[in-house]
Each structure stands twice: as C-alpha cells, then as structure tokens.
Design a binder for these strands. Structure first.
Lengths: 243, 243
DNA sequence: TCTATTAACGAACGCTGTTCGCTACGAACA
DNA sequence: TGTTCGTAGCGAACAGCGTTCGTTAATAGA
C-alpha cells in the first residue's frame, strides 16, 4: 500500500497543516465567553462567536460544555466568584446585609448583561450556595426564625437579580442605539420618558402628568438603594426584640 | 392583449384559487399570539407559528406589526388590560396596594410566560400608564412625597414583574420536563433542591444544611406575599404621620 | 509498536427574524 | 365605466442560531 508518494487528492487535504490539536478547555471557553459578553453584550454571545475566538467551529466546544445553557451558567458562576463576603457579625446584620446587597449589585453591574442569565436559571452553583449561606446565616444568627430568614433571603436575591436584569435591558438598548456612554443614554432616555409623560392627557392621569420631574428624578443606583432600604426596614420589623 | 383564453402556465398559477385576501388585522394577530403563548409557552411563539395560525407565511404579519418585539409588547399590553383597578381610597392605601399587587400577580400568573416580556421592555403602553397612575396617585393622596411615591411605585412594579419572571422560568422548566401539573412539578423540584442542600458539606454551610426543611417550606405564592408585606411595611414607614 | 480513546472539526439540519419583490384586490379618480 | 395606484398578502430567500453526525488524527495505554 505504498500510496504515500502519490499527492493527496485535494478533497483529502490535511485539515490543518501546522499545529493541530490546540489546547481547548472548559476554563478557556468560559473565559472567552465572559470576555465576549463584557465587550459585545449578551446578545453577541453565540456558540459560533465563542468558537471563533479559537479559530474553529462551534462543534469543538461541545466536548467541554454540554450546551449553551451550561456555558451561561458557568460564566455566571465565574462572575459570582468575584463577590467578596466579609466575616459575619450578627450585631451589625443590617449594615452587613446592606453592604452585601451593594456588593452583589456592583459585581452584576460590572458585567451588566449577565443578569440576563441569573434570573433565567435556578441558582445551584458553588458561589450561589456560598452567598446563600452568608445571608441566611447572618439572619439566623441575628435572631430571625429559620422560616423568616429563608423567605427574606429569597426575596433579597430576587430583588438584586431583578434590578440587575432591568439594568441589563437598558444596557442592551443603549448598545442598540449605538451609544457607549451610560450617562448620555440615561439622559436621552429620561428626556424621552419625560416628554412622553408630559404629553399624556392630564384629565385621565392627573398625578403622572403633574409630577413628571419627580418621576424621572432618580437614576438606577438611587432606585436600587431605595428598594434596598424598603426591604431592610421590612426585615428589621420581623426581627425579634430590636429596640 | 387577449391572453386570457390561453391557460395560465403552471408556474403562473393563481396563488389562491378561492377567497384571496382574507381578513388579517393587528388585533387578530395579537389574539393569535396570546393564544399560542398561553397554550404552548413563550418559546413556542415565533412569527412563523403565528402566521401558521392564518395558513400563511411570516411575511404577511409585517403589514400589521413592525417586528416581533412590537408584537410582544402588544400582547403584553393586551394582557395588562385584564387587570381591574378599584376606586382609589387613600385612607385604605395599604389594603388597596396589597390588593393591587395581588391582582397584577394573579393576571401575570394566568398568562405565566408573558412575564418574560414585561421585564425586557420599558412599559409605555396605555395600560402601564393606567396602572402607574393608580399606584402613584394612591401614594400621593395618602400623603407621601412625590419623590418617595415615584420610587415606591417603581420598586413595586419591579418586584411584581421580577417575581412573575421567576415564575415563568419555572413554568418553562415544567414544560421542558414534560409535566403539566404545577403541583407535581413543584414537589419534584423541591425534592431535588432539598436533596441538593442536604448533600452539601455541613462544615462549610452549617445553616443551609441544618434548616433545609425551612428553606423549601414555602411555595411561590407564599414567597410573593412575604416580599409584598416587606415592601408594604417599608413604604408604611415612609408615610407621614401614620399612627 | 500497535490499539483504543477521544478532542477537534467540517458539514449539515432545522429552526429563527426579517427583507425583497411580485401579485392582485379595493378604492379613488378620470 | 375604465384606469390607475396604493397596498395587503405572500412565496422565496438570507443570514444567523444551537445542536448533531460522522470523520480525522493525536495521544495514552498495553
């Protein structure tokens, strides 16, 4: 079978002349995916786009990742890993809970588009559990009943993620509008909303039209903090024997 | 040009022999879309699927609807129309706000998958404004400052929609698992989560592993009501001169 | 050195939203 | 009444998606 001397027919060309079998691992794929989400947005993240980062086709990824959903979960869990948790101090539970919420909010806002993953998946990653233990433990140690602590933790998580999701929607709109400066987008958006409210029939919507300025006064950060304090006060009211 | 007697060549066959130009309007399209979402879920809603309902192709819809996003908004606004609002009674603001939130929750839960639209779009439909005026007006008339009323309204909306979104995710999972009974799904899901928690290392996660039963005790409805009361109490604390 | 395993990957499937350009109806105008 | 014209309807196609199949080839184990 000495066919080696015969040049290979063109349809049997060797796939990659040099450096076949490059390195490709789950970590590299997750890292590339996160890079794409941060730089180009959630909608730009496709299996093809990730594969392109390694100069290959989408099929190559499926050896390391079950499917796109799993990839998203891995990326999300990777981001949650950036969250720093302090030592628990039950005496300062309210301050610590506030700082915790702001910290999670900060990390999710940094990778803004990823909140779209958070709300769509049930949190079962390592880091989700770590965060759950922190909040749940803090409330328990502060004297709350396990049942109330469970419910409070659940609502706190929902609130943070829901707010981040809303923020990511605006981020996507900004990108779609071709803008890059959040401040610029915010002002143009506020202007549109205010104009829309002002054009409403005052007879049917007296309050909305009268207080337009108040309706558009606060930005996302202030809104988040307001809801945060609403929740904290509600939780405090359910704490046993607080002065 | 008396070519009418010559039979049409087969490639020029008249498109539809009978009853060309059937009725097709935006309302009909929206109604069909809502029917599909309710019966088959949000993921089943495609332009092709809607067009199929009228025995035609997707291009036919674009004469009545700008794109899929607009169709989703129209469907969502159509659903919000089902929400009934009472006469405002500022003296009973807390009860009325509670009833309002439960009513919206009820309607969104009825068309469960539609919450996926709500959070992804900035509410500018007729019905969103109607709802906003109700909540905002109620808080103003109850004595709240416009600024606080604006923020409270915003957080209330976010909470309702965020919770509904979370519910829709579970609904999608249920459908994907081939189940049809929410009760059956809930129990199987709770069982999985409880098992997962129990398998965690107790040394690292002492509270989560100790109170597994409390963590999975409440269903979605109870969780929603708990967060609702948290918010209401927080808002009440910001009401002037409440006894 | 031979063999079994498996990562890599080209090609394809069936799906998506959307656009293009043609057809033919209904209304408006001559 | 005859003609024109705007436009709803719609078949076909495009570019992109997630995923699967089957093949190739490099490596690990015997």
């Amino acid at each position: 079978m000495a066919t080696e001397d015969v040049p290979l027919p063109p349809w049997r060309k060797s796939r990659k002349p040099a450096q076949l079998r490059r390195q490709l691992s789950q970590d590299l794929i997750v890292e590339a995916g996160l890079r794409i989400v941060d730089a180009e947005g959630f909608d730009a993240l496709s299996m093809r786009r990730v594969a392109q980062e390694f100069d290959t086709g989408p099929a190559s990824l499926y050896a390391h990742v079950a499917n796109k959903d799993e990839l998203l979960e891995l990326i999300y869990n990777r981001v949650l890993g950036e969250i720093r948790l302090p030592e628990r101090d039950p005496g300062r539970w309210k301050e610590q809970l506030r700082e915790y919420m702001l910290e999670v909010h900060r990390v999710l806002a940094k990778h803004s588009d990823l909140a779209r993953v958070a709300l769509a998946n049930i949190p079962t990653g390592e880091n989700s559990i770590r965060m759950g233990e922190f909040v749940f433990g803090l409330l328990i140690e502060a004297g709350m009943s396990p049942r109330d602590a469970s419910l409070s933790m659940d609502r706190i998580s929902l609130y943070i993620v829901g707010d981040a999701y809303e923020g990511s929607v605006h981020f996507a709109r900004m990108r779609a509008a071709g803008m890059t400066d959040p401040q610029e987008y915010f002002e143009s958006f506020i202007g549109q909303i205010a104009g829309y409210y002002r054009a409403l029939p005052a007879a049917r919507f007296p309050h909305m039209t009268k207080f337009v300025d108040d309706l558009v006064a606060d930005d996302g950060e202030q809104r988040f903090r307001y809801g945060l304090e609403l929740l904290l006060d509600g939780i405090e009211a359910r704490m046993p024997r607080t002065p």
